[in-house]
């Protein structure tokens, strides 16, 4: 009976003060729309940055004359180097085939296989790649490398550094932007709700004088906030869904960033938006009412 009463009260007050309710709803709709677009973008950017950073590795090129036994020994030595997560062996035939299929004319001219056996050494964390590199090229060792059968170790120090810096910057910027956007949305929604409550402060005063407890007055407002928040979020989701089907899905095949597998799932996004819309509005109404309850 109580819940039914509060629900009826909430719906009544929304009907009777349609304009402020609509303003709150529109605010929720817009902010949720922005969030709904922004969250996947941030995620895609982070995903892209991480996958770029994940490809940072050290290449170890063997001498052309290296035997299978040499390869096995070097593999063992590489795995013992600290911060090495894994070693990937690419035999020269395989490397040749891969390159030849990419540049068939150039490799047809070459005739023979100029490529050495290669180890891709993958560090445990992208930021440790430089440590691994310096461990593989000890200053005192013969020819400056770990093992005599190693021809050379790739030297891409400056490139790696740049990649790491850029990806870090992207990740941090995205995180800061997300926090700011979420804060702005919350403030915007809370303020709109406060305005609509301000218009009804006299009503709240009368309720208090009749002997209504604070929560008796507050519940309908909280429920109203919840309804407005979820309807706003629902509309935003509809718009986002339509956009996704009409615009993104056809483009996804051409534009890999959109198709990046690490963006948030649409279902999860729907739940996040709906939940946050309803919660922020409900809490916003409940808190904003506090000022007017002091009669």
């Amino acid at each position: 009976m109580r819940l039914g009463f509060f629900l009826k009260e909430a719906i009544r007050s929304m009907r009777r003060s349609a304009a402020p309710s609509f303003a709150a709803l529109a605010t929720v709709l817009v902010t949720m729309l922005v969030l709904g677009v922004f969250i996947p973008i941030v995620q895609a950017t982070n995903g892209a940055a991480n996958s770029v950073a994940g490809r940072v590795m050290v290449d170890v090129y063997m001498k052309t004359g290296a035997t299978a036994a040499d390869d096995a020994r070097v593999r063992g030595e590489l795995l013992r180097v600290p911060h090495v997560k894994g070693v990937e062996f690419v035999p020269k035939q395989q490397a040749y085939q891969a390159q030849a299929s990419q540049y068939p004319q150039a490799y047809a001219l070459l005739g023979s296989n100029p490529l050495p056996d290669t180890f891709h050494v993958i560090p445990d964390k992208p930021s440790n790649v430089l440590l691994v590199h310096s461990a593989l090229t000890p200053p005192g060792a013969s020819g400056g490398v770990l093992d005599p059968s190693i021809q050379s170790v790739s030297n891409k120090q400056s490139d790696t550094k740049k990649i790491l810096e850029v990806t870090n910057l992207v990740t941090i910027t995205a995180a800061v932007l997300t926090v700011l956007l979420v804060l702005a949305s919350m403030l915007l929604i809370a303020n709109t709700i406060r305005l609509s409550l301000y218009a009804r402060r006299r009503e709240v005063e009368v309720m208090k004088l009749v002997g209504a407890t604070d929560w008796f007055i507050r519940w309908p407002f909280v429920i109203e906030g919840m309804i407005v928040g979820s309807v706003g979020a629902l509309l935003a989701i509809c718009v986002l869904g339509a956009t996704k089907i009409a615009l993104l899905d056809p483009l996804a095949s051409n534009w890999t960033l959109i198709a990046a597998p690490r963006t948030i799932g649409f279902v999860v996004l729907v739940i996040v938006l709906l939940g946050s819309g309803a919660l922020v509005s409900a809490v916003g109404s409940g808190l904003s009412l506090r000022r007017f309850l002091k009669v």
Binding site: R12, S17, E203, L209, G211, A212
Partner: peptide, 22 residues
């Protein structure tokens, strides 16, 4: 917290009626 319960035992009439317009 008990003010609301107290007020239920006092009927109040105001010059400006203080009705709920909605």
């Amino acid at each position: 917290k008990r003010i609301a319960y107290y007020r239920r035992n006092v009927g109040v009439v105001f010059q400006d009626f203080k009705l709920l317009p909605s």
